[in-house]
Computed example of a mutant assay.
Amino acid sequence: MSRREQIEALLADDPNDAFLLYGLAMEYRKEGAYDEALTRFDQLIQQSPPYVAAFFMAGQMLAEAGRVNDARTWLRNGIEEAQRQGNGHAASEMSELLMTLGQMGE
């Protein structure tokens, strides 16, 4: 059983577990299954409170996939949420990535 399959089995018991959803998203990302990863990242930001790391990882993944405008949107939303949650470190990391994407052109 692969790591992804193990996580999916655990999620069957607790489908809203943020740690497991994040792990599953990262496994999909590693496999290059970006749409599936994005679906899990989206689930994480719909939770209350939104899972801030999901914004950063989704933005990073989208940038790597060449979807720069989508990456910018995720990062801007993530920066706002990180600031709302008082997570200055995450906001700073996302701001840095957003600045590098700005230099990559439109």
Rank of each mutant, 00 (worst) to 15 (best):
L98V: 02
A65L: 06
A91L: 08
L62Q: 07
E27F: 06
Y34N: 12
M99N: 13
S92M: 10
V52K: 11
G32N: 10
R29Q: 12
E8H: 00
R3N: 04
G102Y: 09
G32A: 12
R4E: 05
A71N: 02
A18D: 04
L24I: 06
L38A: 13
Y22M: 10
V68M: 05
L20Q: 05
E5H: 09
M61Y: 01
I45W: 07
E80H: 12
A25W: 01
E31I: 03
V68Y: 03
S95H: 04
E8P: 00
Y34F: 13
G66H: 05
E8L: 06
I7R: 02
S48W: 06
F41Y: 12
D35V: 11
R67V: 06
E96C: 05
Q83R: 15
I7Y: 04
Q83E: 15
E93F: 11
L38T: 11
R4A: 11
N77R: 15
L24Q: 01
K30L: 14
T100Y: 06
A82N: 13
L21W: 01
Q43I: 00
Y28D: 08
E27G: 06
N69W: 03
T73E: 15
G66T: 05
N77I: 07
T73Q: 15
S2R: 01
T39P: 00
F55D: 07
F19Y: 02
E96N: 12
Y34K: 10
M104A: 13
A53E: 10
V52Y: 03
A91M: 08
A9T: 02
K30F: 07
A65K: 14
G59C: 04
R40C: 04
R4H: 03
M1G: 10
Q47M: 15
G86R: 14
I7H: 07
R29L: 03
A63F: 03
D14Q: 02
I7C: 03
A37E: 06
A9D: 01
A63W: 00
A33K: 14
S92H: 11
D17H: 04
M1K: 08
E27T: 11
G102W: 03
Q46C: 11
A37H: 03
A71H: 01
R40A: 05
G66E: 07
R72C: 04
F55K: 11
A71L: 05
E64M: 01
F55H: 11
Y51A: 12
N69V: 12
A53V: 09
D35W: 09
E80F: 07
A9N: 05
S48V: 11
L20T: 03
A53F: 09
D13F: 00
W74I: 10
L10R: 07
F56S: 10
D17T: 01
E5I: 01
P50Y: 09
Y51I: 09
A54K: 10
E93K: 15
E80W: 05
A71T: 05
Q60K: 12
